[in-house]
Write a protein that binds this DNA or RNA. Structure first.
Lengths: 239, 239
DNA sequence: GCAATGCGGTACATTCTGTTACAATTTTTT
DNA sequence: AAAAAATTGTAACAGAATGTACCGCATTGC
């Protein structure tokens, strides 16, 4: 993702998306184009897209709907193109969950700066969706093999993790020291929203603690932020 | 932080910052104002600011310098106010690390929408306010492990702190010798404002004293400033 | 199919926090 | 100096949040 970000440009006007794509390519940004929402979905399935630039005024399924869909199913950041400097549109766009917006006619240099800013900002988030499937993490006395989804302690003793436990642990490991709400954790591990009185995360945390904490009654790795969520404590090494 | 975000408005024009602050307050955003960079720094030390709205064209130490400083020392997001819709300014602003910018004259409704968007976006970033989650403090006979929220005395005996006690203690440790009102402490520990007859802080202080004071009846570490608030007394070492 | 496993809902115990009430203390007023 | 008012300390209580055992359902592997 660092080397060269991959941006999907979605706009129904060929004379906007093509020059923009060429401009981005000239400046070290891989660009893919789509003329409508359906093509955009195809492109998203086919490639690892890091960011979407999206015209909200398109025929058919419009940009806002696609933006909502992106928000609900992925973490891919979105920059909206809005037809006019119209306040309501801007605000609706941001509330649909776009990361930024640019009004037409736009200065491509500015759009590029915003693309870079959004990617820098969200760079610490998981690419696309879901935990990584390779690599090794070290924390506390544990070593986590991401490929096998196994925990190995100092003596080489292996503890198996379920899918849910693994995803929860990786979500926390990727953000050490950060307080993650139950909502966020549910989003990161299951890609869904919390129902009222949803205790799924509490349960999963409880199960995970039983496996990784020396004393599950006094957790020192996954600590509770009362009224806030959970936080991973300690050094995390990634190898 | 969920309850109501706290925004610091920094602008040297009273007729901009004051109406803006009132507008934000009317819409559920706590607002503090500062007329220059020095006042802004003071406000940042004294309160738990979630976001800074900053005029980049100010006499003295200008907005960009303050913005840079914020970026280097905190994670508090920044929205710049720029005098004109001038492309270079915009891009310089974003590269200095601002999260967004708004050009004057601005629509307060739009600025509010952007404030909300930035806070939502950065909500999952490491807390810019709130207690540090790493490091160790030493004071009196205690050693406080910030990551584990545990107090350790000279003999290695561990005393656990609740989330609220820990946040209160860190708020005081970060400002030794300073008198902090109940309002400020409530802001720093819970991110909320005091209700009439709010005794939450008094109680939390009482509970904390029970844990850290040799003689809770004669507190020597957290002393009461009658009519003012509380003050941490003694040396604080940070390692 | 059937057993094993994992997950989420439910229920209940526990912990934490804020409110209330009242006593103690300090300041202000008389 | 005494009385009144304001402020603070804290015990007791209540409500909310959290921990987790248990159970049923779904999925997986045989």
């Amino acid at each position: 993702m660092d080397a060269s970000p991959h941006v999907l440009v979605v706009d129904d006007h060929r004379d906007i998306r093509e020059p923009l794509a060429r401009y981005l390519e000239r400046h070290g940004v891989r660009a893919t184009v789509a003329g409508n929402a359906a093509a955009a979905r195809r492109a998203l399935r086919a490639a690892a897209v890091d960011l979407v630039v999206l015209d909200i005024m398109m025929p058919g399924e419009d940009g806002l709907a696609l933006c909502r869909h992106l928000r609900e199913t992925t973490h891919i950041p979105v920059i909206l193109l809005t037809a006019m400097a119209e306040d309501t549109d801007r605000i609706v766009g941001l509330e649909v969950g776009a990361d930024d917006y640019v009004t037409k006619p736009f200065n491509p240099r500015e759009l590029l700066a915003r693309i870079r800013a959004v990617i820098r900002r969200t760079g610490s988030l998981p690419p696309g969706r879901g935990p990584r499937t390779a690599g090794t993490w070290r924390f506390d006395r544990w070593s986590l093999d991401a490929g096998r989804r196994e925990l190995v302690d100092e003596d080489g003793v292996v503890t198996a993790l379920s899918t849910g436990e693994f995803r929860l642990l990786v979500a926390l490991l990727e953000r050490p020291g950060m307080v993650l709400s139950r909502d966020q954790l549910l989003d990161l591990t299951r890609g869904r929203r919390a129902a009222p009185f949803d205790r799924a995360i509490d349960n999963q945390v409880s199960r995970l603690r039983r496996k990784i904490e020396r004393d599950p009654k006094n957790p020192r790795i996954i600590v509770t932020e009362w009224g806030g969520g959970y936080r991973f404590v300690g050094e995390v090494e990634r190898i």
